[in-house]
């Protein structure tokens, strides 16, 4: 469970997140909001890339904010970025291995663990291909494979489906839905694609101007008048 308590993030005179308190309990949660709502800032807070002015964050009862970004990764927090971060001159295998060997002691079933996530994400066939030689969907799946390797506890996926087509998005949805069953990790999915959120997330948080607009079961939240007015424009 991600427990955010009274978190405020301020950049100069701008409050990017303003006294946010929310509990995210479901295996796959969504985070939506219009541009500038503070979605990526919240992900940055959770992953240690942005500092809070006040408040605290507990994950499964453990305080997160005292940990450095690297310590959070070793603890089990994973994130992907809006722009995929595949290393082009490493193979797909080495891209995953590069993360695994930073978070776990070497050698212990290392190859099996990398092979396992590549099989789950359907990247086995391109395991030896260079990052530069795989297509956008494979790159997106590689980002998911990197997030899954090495006993993750929480996955923060920032627009994991950006730029892919309908058919590919459906496959990605299936993969994201299977994460909790696969490894027990909780997923926080940030995306503009309401269909993706609707079909994958059972609980959704909506931010607007850094404040909590709504939180609850996804369908209820998406139908709430204030959400339709602020985010969906209807």
């Amino acid at each position: 469970m991600i427990d955010i308590q009274n978190v405020t993030v301020q950049f100069g005179g701008l409050k990017a997140i303003d006294s946010l308190s929310v509990q995210l309990t479901d295996p796959v949660c969504g985070l939506i909001g219009p541009n500038g709502a503070g979605k990526t800032t919240l992900v940055n807070v959770l992953s240690g890339f942005a500092r809070v002015r006040q408040g605290c964050v507990l994950i499964d009862g453990e305080s997160l904010l005292e940990k450095s970004p690297v310590q959070r990764v070793r603890w089990g927090l994973r994130r992907s970025f809006q722009t995929e971060q595949v290393v082009e001159d490493l193979t797909v295998w080495d891209n995953v291995l590069a993360l695994l060997e930073q978070v776990e002691p070497p050698r212990r079933q290392q190859a099996e663990k990398v092979g396992w996530v590549l099989e789950y994400t359907g990247l086995e066939a391109v395991a030896n291909a260079l990052g530069a030689h795989i297509n956008l969907f494979q790159r997106r799946k590689l980002e998911l494979a990197k997030a899954l390797v090495g006993a993750p506890r929480v996955l923060l996926l920032d627009e994991p489906g950006a730029g892919i087509n309908e058919q590919e998005a459906a496959e990605l949805r299936t993969l994201i839905l299977g994460v909790h069953t696969l490894c027990g990790a909780q997923v926080l999915l940030i995306d503009h694609d309401v269909e993706l959120i609707k079909s994958t997330c059972s609980q959704t948080l909506v931010l607007d101007f850094g404040r909590l607009l709504a939180v609850g079961p996804t369908l209820d939240v998406l139908n709430a008048p204030q959400v339709r007015s602020a985010y969906l424009g209807t």
């Binding site: 890339f49 990764v73 994130r79 970025f81 290393v87």
Partner: peptide, 8 residues
């Protein structure tokens, strides 16, 4: 950022 997010 990519390196930090990978635990480097």
């Amino acid at each position: 950022a990519a390196a930090n997010a990978a635990g480097v």
